[in-house]
Write a protein that binds this DNA or RNA. Structure first.
Lengths: 215, 215
DNA sequence: ACCTGAACACCGTTCAAGT
DNA sequence: ACCTGAACACCGTTCAAGT
């Protein structure tokens, strides 16, 4: 239990713990700066100041500004995708209505947990580093949707790759518009219901009975 | 036909003509730099060089870099919206199938006329100045869609504001994914057909007979 | 070993000096 | 009148010098 390690790292745990702590402080600082000044006002120096470290230290944790923002975007999108994946699991084997509502609601709810944060991340997502992260997350979402659709007892939905692509991508536009356009709460709810309707209608229009053959 | 105007602008037309020409040269240079180096590699100096003017001159035409990019984005989106508006006019009074196909095709075709350009503009659209332009263009699109839907002889589609919002926004995600994810041509066509299907299915699911009452 | 922040290169923007 | 480009302020990134 002594602290007599000389030239190596003091102890294994503390070093990692401090490292994780600093990492988290930098993330949190980035979020704050992003919310206060927007993506265009974000500066590595401002982030470092807010996190209580020097710029040099920030660059030990992230190779450059884009990597920092990409990591933040990735963390956010991984959370959102995880929510959608969970909804997919929960709705396995249920009706198309429930499938559609679960997925739509999970996505909207995840994005609206911190609307301003979701909103400001769109500019990060549109940059080079962001686009590949978005693509990867979209891929994961489509996989989860394929699983979900395949679990339906009575129906086949045609080419699941295509159907899940359309399902996944068609909800992002409306939600982005909702987040950036500041529409009324009534309108928000109305649109959520309409989105469910749209996905249900789509699924039913591409579905065929699984029992015998298909139309 | 003489050129004897002393201290004022040489002639009215030539000045405007030269002005318009330079303006266009700057736009064209911006597009080229954007295509070659991406939004993150674009520099006002590079644009000015490519346009054959000095930075100072560029700043006489545009107050700052963001205004330049916003103007370019606006011009692009105005063209795209014009295409969609025209499709809406052409499909007035037709079946829901034709309405959906016209609008979806017009949007996809307009965006795919210069795919790389459309693609690189997403990062411009996500920035502060871009978001309000996108919102305004979305507004115009929704108006055109309301007109289109109202022209249907046999059906009412409920709250047109909401339905047109969902229609307009739900196609942007798939098309953006198509443009950024480099999917195969087969897949592209398949998705175009599916998008039509989705919009048709949605319109039919929210429609009711106009003749007597509604369900 | 790890942190610091002055220093460097580069970019957006301006404006005194040209024509 | 209009254009030019050196100059300025600021930002991303590095690295010699500290502890």
């Amino acid at each position: 239990m002594k602290t007599k390690i000389s030239a190596t790292r003091p102890m294994k745990m503390p070093v990692q713990a401090r490292s994780i702590l600093t990492n988290e402080a930098i993330f949190e600082a980035t979020i704050q700066v992003l919310l206060n000044l927007g993506a265009s006002g974000l500066t590595t120096t401002k982030v470092a100041d807010r996190a209580g470290v020097s710029v040099g230290t920030l660059y030990q944790y992230f190779p450059n500004k884009q990597a920092l923002l990409s990591a933040l975007l990735k963390r956010h999108l991984e959370y959102v995708v995880a929510c959608v994946e969970q909804a997919c699991v929960s709705a396995r084997g249920r009706s198309t209505d429930i499938m559609a509502a679960s997925v739509v609601d999970a996505f909207i709810d995840a994005k609206f947990e911190r609307p301003e944060f979701s909103r400001v991340l769109y500019s990060v997502a549109a940059e080079l580093g962001g686009q590949s992260i978005v693509a990867a997350m979209m891929q994961r979402t489509q996989l989860a949707l394929c699983d979900l659709l395949a679990s339906h007892h009575d129906s086949r939905f045609g080419d699941l790759k295509v159907v899940s692509f359309v399902m996944a991508t068609s909800v992002v536009g409306p939600v982005q518009a909702l987040l950036t356009a500041e529409v009324s709460l009534n309108m928000q709810d109305a649109i959520r219901l309409q989105l469910r309707k749209m996905i249900v209608a789509y699924l039913q229009s591409v579905s065929s009975q699984a029992a015998m053959g298909q139309a």
